[in-house]
Write a protein that binds this DNA or RNA. Structure first.
Lengths: 166, 166
DNA sequence: TTATTAATATCGATGCCTAAAATATCAAAA
DNA sequence: TTTTGATATTTTAGGCATCGATATTAATAA
């Protein structure tokens, strides 16, 4: 649209920009929302429970799997690399919140499990965490949140189709 | 709702969870979308241009401000700490993509600016970057993207009201 | 059995990121 | 002028995250 009055030299680039900028703005807004919320949660986890978000996330995975998880399983579910899981687990072990046990089936592998204290501690934090999220989304109407949920499902599948096929 | 048939001992917690879980799921879905897209972009920037996302983001800020920006301005706009900006800028300087100049007005401050090569290099990358974003959102309809944009505005202001008042 | 290939986890190097402390400068009050 | 408080940046220490390399174990093939 409006090809006229656009300098010929930068035509392609200019048109690409003006046609696609809305998607870029949409992406930047998505990013801004996520960062805003994530930074808030990260900060409160730190000040109120003296824990980091990655550690909280790892514990959340273990809470859902009382039988414990292998390092590789954690890596897959948290969508991070194995080396990363090694480091976070090390920290949690020294804090007494999780334990590494040898797998009876596979001597290469460990089973990571919450300790009783880890479980107790996590439940407290999870309750607070959920309230924070409710608070952060509280300015939106019930219906708007439902719409957002559906639209994000579309976005996820759209992006996954592109990103998935590396 | 449905107070009956809920064990008394965990009543509060259970109800809180069942009532608020939708918001939690909504948040996790938001996070999943963002991570999916961000990781894809990060990976392509790396493989196709051998640059990291933070460096790209810093250059993007400078491109919009041809007169250059102070370190503190960059920090604010990128929503990261000053120490971080120092490190990223150092890298870009050694790569010859940006320069630090003394501020004529304020001897405490630096002005960071793109070099000609930095500007040339950034424009190439930005064009590709925009196409990737268009691709990633391409599975959504025009109207859906518009709705999403509006709903995210609501979310942003809702979250900012909570997160802003530290 | 032996050799090969794949899977599991760790380690080292590198980069991003923050919070807190240190350094330098500015601007205005005493 | 000197002090005081605010501002701008860097430095330091620690945690998070990736990649590539490595050691061990498992599973499979010869």
């Amino acid at each position: 649209m409006s090809k006229k009055s656009v300098p010929a030299a930068s035509d392609t680039e200019t048109r690409a920009t003006s046609e696609h900028a809305p998607d870029l703005r949409l992406w930047l807004r998505t990013l801004a929302c996520t960062n805003l919320i994530e930074n808030h949660i990260r900060s409160r986890l730190r000040t109120e429970f003296n824990i980091t978000l990655p550690r909280f996330d790892l514990m959340a995975q273990l809470e859902r799997s009382p039988q414990g998880l292998k390092m590789g399983e954690l890596s897959k579910r948290m969508m991070v690399t194995g080396g990363n899981v090694t480091g976070i687990t090390d920290q949690l072990v020294t804090e007494g919140l999780v334990v590494r046990e040898d797998s009876p089936k596979d001597r290469r592998a460990y089973i990571v499990r919450l300790t009783p204290e880890g479980r107790r501690s996590f439940r407290k934090m999870a309750e607070a965490h959920e309230m924070w999220v409710v608070e952060l989304f509280g300015g939106m109407g019930e219906q708007q949140r439902g719409q957002l949920y559906e639209l994000l499902a579309q976005l996820k599948s759209s992006a996954a189709r592109i990103a998935g096929s590396k």
